[in-house]
Design a protein around this nucleic acid. Structure first.
Lengths: 102, 102
DNA sequence: ACCATAGGCAAGCAACTGCTTGCATGACAA
DNA sequence: TTGTCATGCAAGCAGTTGCTTGCCTATGGT
């Protein structure tokens, strides 16, 4: 069940989901409740547990979040690999080439 | 009226809009009718003129498409600059560093 | 056993999206 | 002007989305 390309773009379309990715990038391996409280504290969002859970389902289906279970905890990790589909599709000219030789 | 970050992500969420970006990347400066016919021919899409026009509005609002008028024609050009918001936000590790010094 | 905690499932609802339909505008040609 | 071509505008409609509500499962602590 490899995620389709469209799933990645659709997953990024929601601001709450983007905030979740931001949060997971800053602190990897958060649980659902941890994410909910940190989204409220640091991003000013007021999303319920179920809402965040559904967002995480979408992100996981898109391959942007990987999960691992330990006991009754489920940890979430960011995976930026699917984002390559974007940069590879429409060639983004580098803003600055660090190894330019003039 | 600089486009917000969310506009870029939302604009990319639709498969028809992504096909439009593909088409504009391949052939720059297309008109509305040109885009419609080429979307049908090369991408198997059956979008009406009005549908494509509305998609172009969304893409232009996101800053991904720039337009220029000449007489009764309106030409559309791709602008990939807003896509940097994605790669800059979640640091994508380079798949290969061309100037690595081991 | 009992209870609290972490998470899952599913139906219902309001809001949004993409598309169609129909008409209007503006530019060029005969 | 009259007609045609390229595009613009706006209302309405069906499908989707994000969220809530309510209940359920499972793990760990006491």
């Amino acid at each position: 069940m490899v995620p389709g390309v469209g799933d990645v773009f659709r997953a990024l379309a929601d601001p709450t989901r983007r905030a979740i990715l931001d949060e997971l990038q800053e602190r990897s391996g958060q649980t659902l409740f941890e994410l909910v409280s940190r989204l409220v504290m640091r991003h000013g969002l007021t999303s319920s547990r179920q809402a965040v859970s559904q967002h995480l389902d979408v992100l996981e289906a898109a391959g942007l979040v990987r999960t691992r279970r330990e006991g009754r905890y489920k940890f979430h990790d960011l995976d930026t690999a699917p984002l390559r589909a974007i940069t590879d599709r429409w060639r983004i000219d580098p803003q600055e080439d660090p190894c330019a030789s003039p």
